[in-house]
Amino acid sequence: MPHISVKLYPGRSEQQKVQLAERIVKDVISLLNCGEESVSLAIEEIKPEDWAEQVYEPDILNKSEKLYKQPGYNPFQ
């Protein structure tokens, strides 16, 4: 039962978000050998001025041991 959470800056079209969700779900189904009914995906838009506090610190900095892809930036430097 994978649930995927995608956080990104605002500005992408609804079509882009739908396509992103479809592609991610397709890959999850293929790689994890699960049914589409098992997968859920949410997209949350975060304003750039809120990114460090709402995403970077809680989800990246404080959970770095759970990241499989580290970002190449640090908003606190």
Rank of each mutant, 00 (worst) to 15 (best):
P2N: 05
P2S: 04
H3Q: 05
H3M: 13
I4S: 06
I4H: 07
I4Q: 09
I4F: 04
S5F: 01
S5I: 04
S5N: 10
V6M: 05
V6F: 13
K7F: 15
K7M: 08
L8V: 14
L8R: 01
L8H: 02
L8S: 10
L8D: 00
Y9W: 12
Y9P: 04
P10Q: 15
P10I: 15
R12F: 05
R12G: 11
R12Y: 09
R12W: 08
S13T: 10
S13R: 06
S13Q: 02
S13C: 08
S13M: 02
E14D: 15
Q15I: 01
Q15V: 06
Q15N: 09
Q15R: 09
Q16F: 05
Q16L: 12
K17Q: 14
K17T: 09
K17N: 08
V18Y: 01
V18G: 15
Q19P: 04
Q19V: 10
Q19A: 15
L20R: 09
L20D: 04
L20Q: 07
L20N: 14
L20P: 07
A21G: 10
A21I: 05
A21K: 00
E22P: 07
E22K: 06
R23A: 12
I24R: 14
I24T: 08
I24A: 11
I24N: 08
V25A: 01
V25R: 03
V25S: 10
K26P: 03
D27N: 00
V28Q: 03
I29A: 00
I29D: 03
S30N: 09
S30E: 08
L31K: 13
L31Q: 13
L32Q: 02
L32P: 01
N33I: 08
N33G: 07
N33W: 10
C34H: 11
C34V: 05
C34A: 14
G35Q: 12
G35H: 09
E36N: 07
E36A: 03
E36C: 04
E37S: 01
S38N: 15
S38C: 06
V39D: 05
V39Y: 12
V39T: 12
V39M: 07
S40Y: 00
S40N: 05
L41H: 01
A42H: 14
A42L: 07
I43S: 01
I43T: 08
I43D: 03
E44W: 08
E44S: 07
E44A: 15
E45I: 08
I46Y: 06
P48H: 06
P48D: 09
E49G: 12
E49T: 11
E49C: 06
E49K: 12
D50G: 13
D50H: 15
D50M: 09
E53N: 01
E53H: 00
V55W: 01
V55M: 14
V55P: 00
Y56P: 02
Y56V: 02
Y56L: 05
Y56C: 03
Y56W: 04
E57R: 12
P58Y: 03
P58V: 11
P58W: 03
I60K: 05
I60Y: 03
L61S: 09
L61Y: 07
L61N: 05
L61P: 00
N62T: 02
S64K: 11
E65Y: 12
E65L: 13
K66S: 14
K66R: 14
K66T: 07
K66V: 12
K66E: 13
L67I: 02
L67Q: 15
Y68I: 03
Y68K: 01
